[in-house]
Nucleic acid binder design. Structure first.
Lengths: 145, 145
DNA sequence: CCGCAATGCTTCCCAAAAGAAAGTACGCAC
DNA sequence: GTGCGTACTTTCTTTTGGGAAGCATTGCGG
């Protein structure tokens, strides 16, 4: 699979490179690429879902983070919150139009990761995750003797 | 712009929904969608770059986070680190083959965000509700009396 | 009649992560 | 020998995230 390096790239190439700090793009990118943002958005792809269902799907999320992530994404207009005044309470979350557009460009990423994750984490040699290990062992690699 | 809702979706639909916690996909997704992961990866799209150049491009990143993010991404095999034994030290970072594939699916996302960010942050409550602006600003309130 | 379960959040407390800034190593110019 | 420039690391402080309990409401089991 050849990655065409001659891609037509929008405004990213034009500037010095990436979005400047504090600009809207950075804000939105932060919201979307937050730890749970992608999971929640993709989870909503197959239709409206309730709080407890999202909680089950985004396995490992805390209720606090679920509430916060949903609020942020709703604030950005990616999803709708539909609270029905019944007992026990029932709240349905669903992707907005804009949210569906976003998830559409998000899905290729998620699919690619799903397909390649195994070979990525199993790559031997310099370890799968640099969090621990070689960093502390080699204080400075810069100037090799 | 039409988002084809009738998309044929990969393996995501098959399971209960999203990747289970602790599986390789989640690990990789966390690395990529970490706060600076996307910025660094996209910054490297137009060729190898030095430490200080990346620091400038990913505006706002701290040196600690730059080092950590680079280590993680290198551990995942998305980029190569080429340290030359010269004084003053010179280290070039470049996308690996795998990294180029990843950025290729990342770019549509980044482009979409770049195009829509303005309307997203400037639309407070299109849905008509009071939840305006940054949702992170909702202190307390509960079920409004 | 009373307490409890079910649901969707919020609040408190503490651990983990991110940020700021200073330190480290090295050779060269001064 | 002091200071500079580069690429990091280390230390300390601030922000963020997770766990669990609380709250509000009401039909239902006992």
């Amino acid at each position: 699979m050849t990655v065409s390096t001659g891609n037509s790239l929008s405004p990213l190439q034009g500037a010095d490179g990436i979005f400047p700090a504090g600009c809207p793009s950075r804000t939105v990118l932060d919201h979307v690429s937050s730890k749970w943002g992608v999971l929640i958005l993709v989870a909503l792809w197959n239709g409206p879902q309730r709080w407890s269902e999202l909680r089950r799907r985004a396995e490992g999320i805390s209720e606090k983070m679920l509430a916060q992530t949903l609020k942020t994404l709703e604030g950005d207009g990616f999803l709708h919150r539909d609270a029905q005044p019944v007992i026990p309470p029932r709240v349905d979350y669903s992707l907005s139009n804009r949210g569906r557009e976003l998830v559409a460009v998000l899905l290729p990423l998620v699919s690619w990761i799903a397909e390649h994750a195994d070979e990525i984490v199993s790559v031997p040699g310099t370890a799968g995750s640099g969090e621990s290990g070689d960093a502390a062992e080699a204080p400075h690699g810069h100037i090799a003797p």
